[in-house]
Design a protein around this nucleic acid. Structure first.
Lengths: 227, 227
DNA sequence: CGAGAGATTGACTGCGGTCAAAAAGCGTGG
DNA sequence: CCACGCTTTTTGACCGCAGTCAATCTCTCG
């Protein structure tokens, strides 16, 4: 029997924004299936780990949303990524976290000791593949993010962002994050984010139900914007 | 005995721009040490692989420089990364390359079949660690790149770029790439790259010996720019 | 109902993009 | 060696998008 056990909280397909991928699992301790999930809970804006902390764990999001970000010397913040249900975050090259991780919303995450995962990966090839695949997901998303930051106007950035959040079908988008989070993720200011959303509403592309709830009225127009 | 054999072309420490890391090796076929290196050679601007090609190999740069990039629908180009001696490129989430790879200069690269690496990694933990570590290097560099693209002025971008290229000590930087390459890497236009370099020269920070040779006159000023 | 955080809107500015032209390299072949 | 033509780079003039500063509006929660 394989040591592979479907990770709790891995409901449905893991989602790489803009590119659905097959569901993945991560390994829990063998025989752990009968124990309650060892998930950690965090309140909104709580720090999960800080830049410079020793990188002991990888984390899998069970519920809620997490942001990984970096604070620059000039006081500004760069949001590296948002992580939702099923996403794994905490990958690092070095022994310390180069980013910090914070709860965007109240959330639950399962911590996996890197050392444990690595030794399991050494014993079980399927675990190694899963771990590698999660790392590649992180890489692929960061690449797409870099592309977006480098070569897109404010409307383009928001179009890509909203379509990613909405998924391939959804017409209503619930934003878990503030304008500030969005701005720091897209390399814009909160004013430009707000202005651009208002502009898209005037054009009939969106409807801003509340600040955090957006209805996509014209998905084709958004797609066209993405280029 | 370990199956690990130092990869040819792995001279000196593998360099993560802005963050030196210990030297790494990748595995060659056992007993291959007596055979000539199976390096592939490419002329300037030759295509190593194209977006959409099946991702069969990872590549390690022996000499010269490689760029991985993506062509957008609007005709513009995003340069994901430059890869120099000792760097490994070609990591992909899916079965196909999401980026294309091209020779910036005449270059030599060693191809490693992904399937072979994966089976070797399954047998030898040290191989698995090396592979994982190269992937993390790729991730870390892409993260830093995204950060740069999101939150930096043109002078900041060029300061970071030049210091990365120069390394911790060098005063003279040989640019292997054109202004076009630099612009597409930094999310700028060739005019802005040129103008900004000229400006830095007027300020006494740089001296442009030729278009491709730059002398760093005031490293402290560059560091200050980086923030 | 009031206080405070978050979001929106407006006026203005400035950085970097765009368009255009000149200058500088750099092979190639006479 | 020089002349020629092509590519790359530099420089200039102008413009527009997004940032900045500031005021107002809207939610939410106590």
């Amino acid at each position: 029997m394989s040591a592979s056990i479907a990770l709790r909280g891995d409901h449905g397909a893991a989602k790489l924004w803009g590119a659905p991928v097959p569901p993945l699992t991560l390994i829990g301790p063998a025989g752990e299936t009968t124990l309650p999930p060892p998930a950690l809970h965090f309140t909104q804006d709580a720090e999960i780990y800080a830049e410079g902390d020793e990188a002991v764990y990888l984390y899998k999001v069970v519920s809620g949303m997490v942001r990984t970000c970096k604070f620059q010397t000039d006081g500004r913040r760069h949001v590296d990524a948002f992580h939702g249900q099923g996403d794994v975050f905490g990958f690092e090259l070095g022994a310390e976290h180069a980013l910090s991780a914070e709860a965007v919303t109240e959330c639950a995450v399962i911590p996996y000791r890197r050392r444990v995962l690595e030794s399991k990966a050494a014993q079980d090839e399927t675990v190694a593949r899963q771990l590698y695949r999660y790392a590649m997901q992180s890489l692929e998303r960061t690449r797409q993010h870099a592309q977006l930051l480098g070569r897109a106007s404010a409307p383009q950035k928001l179009a890509v962002f909203l379509l990613d959040l909405a998924g391939p079908r959804g017409a209503a988008v619930d934003l878990a994050m503030t304008r500030h989070d969005i701005a720091d993720y897209l390399g814009l200011t909160i004013e430009t984010v707000s202005r651009t959303l208002s502009h898209l509403e005037r054009d009939g592309v969106l409807h801003l139900i509340t600040a955090r709830q957006i209805e996509i009225r014209d998905r084709a127009a958004l797609r066209t914007l993405c280029g």
